[in-house]
């Protein structure tokens, strides 16, 4: 069995070596694939805070992914059309600056997560899953009917947004930027998990009545986790939209929420690199099997089934011989 920290470093190293190889082998598409995996991993790392530590099975995380995407799309759209965004008396100029877009995506998603969390966390179990799904569908159908920003057809952005000091049009530079953001998110997850907050949140998942009897409020703990989780997933949405230079209602779709959960389960729920391994496998299968058959998701389903039946700790669980971070 391999120690988990070694697996973590090997996976990260893979995410450095593969794109560098692609750069020297002149395979820009591989870099784009790796970027896609990194961004999906970031979205799932966000969800993993709520799901893995807090036990919140959210089937509505596409809301935050979509909000991040539309934050980017709307700001960039107004920048490329030179028409400011008018919200009543408030006039906001569009921007092509990634840091500004990221902050907007983070704040928008966090606020949405706060409101959705306040309402959803009054329920547990299957009701929580259903209410988060309902919010997801609400945003999905709203975006379809939002004709000002493309409605069902979505919104195209002609040129990738800027980041100071980088040429983001270069695939390897944009990849490096996304990887740096992912590493930051992994650092946040790692720190949170071992902090007093992480300890209390993890206990709130396992024994909420115990958490209450030590004077803590499990719902507030879960709400903060949901907000942090939503914000990170929102940030990934902005990057995803920038990768494709396109946003559409599919970013709000419940299938996407489901895929994020699948990525985490395949990699290992609650494990630091679980979402990263899940995302890498997902993108690899999508690319390798997607070329052979349009029904490639069937094979992903088979893998998921095998893991759920025989390896509760996901791929990391198989490699470490431990079903959870401790056991």
């Amino acid at each position: 069995m391999i120690a988990e920290r070694w697996i973590n470093w090997i996976v990260l190293l893979g995410f450095v070596v593969l794109p560098l190889w692609a750069l020297f082998a002149d395979e820009p598409f591989t870099i784009t694939l790796a970027t896609r995996a990194v961004i999906l991993a970031l979205a799932a790392v966000g969800l993993n805070i709520a799901l893995g530590i807090g036990g919140l099975v959210s089937l509505g995380h596409a809301v935050f992914f979509g909000l991040g995407g539309y934050a980017m799309g709307i700001l960039a759209h107004h920048a490329q059309t030179y028409a400011p965004l008018e919200l009543g008396p408030l006039v906001i100029e569009g921007t092509k600056s990634m840091p500004i877009i990221w902050v907007t995506a983070l704040v928008t998603s966090a606020l949405a997560a706060l409101v959705i969390g306040l309402l959803s966390l009054r329920t547990t179990g299957v009701y929580f899953i259903m209410i988060t799904l309902a919010f997801g569908q609400m945003f999905f159908f709203f975006s379809i009917s939002w004709s000002a920003y493309g409605g069902e057809d979505g919104l195209s952005i002609y040129v990738r947004n800027d980041f100071p000091g980088l040429n983001t049009l270069q695939p390897i530079q944009f990849f490096g930027l996304c990887l740096a953001v992912l590493c930051l998110a992994l650092g946040i997850h790692s720190r949170l998990r071992t902090s007093p907050f992480g300890l209390a949140l993890n206990a709130a998942r396992q024994a909420p009545e115990r958490v209450e009897t030590v004077g803590l409020n499990p719902m507030r703990l879960k709400l903060l986790a949901f907000v942090i989780s939503g914000a990170l997933t929102g940030l990934s949405g902005a990057l995803f939209a920038d990768l494709n230079r396109f946003v559409s209602p599919t970013m709000f779709s419940w299938q996407l929420s489901g895929e994020l959960i699948v990525l985490i389960i395949i990699g290992g729920v609650g494990r630091l690199m679980g979402p990263v391994i899940g995302a890498a496998l997902f993108v690899a299968l999508e690319h390798l099997l997607g070329g052979l058959t349009e029904f490639w998701l069937v094979w992903l389903g088979v893998i998921l089934l095998l893991i759920v039946l025989f390896a509760r700790g996901g791929i990391i669980g198989i490699l470490t011989g431990k079903a959870g971070p401790n056991v």
Partner: peptide, 20 residues
């Protein structure tokens, strides 16, 4: 488990940084 009680007693559940 015992640390959870200590965190509750110290009212430190909102400390997001630093290993407990």
């Amino acid at each position: 488990n015992a640390l959870l009680g200590a965190v509750g007693h110290a009212r430190k559940p909102w400390r997001l940084w630093g290993a407990v």
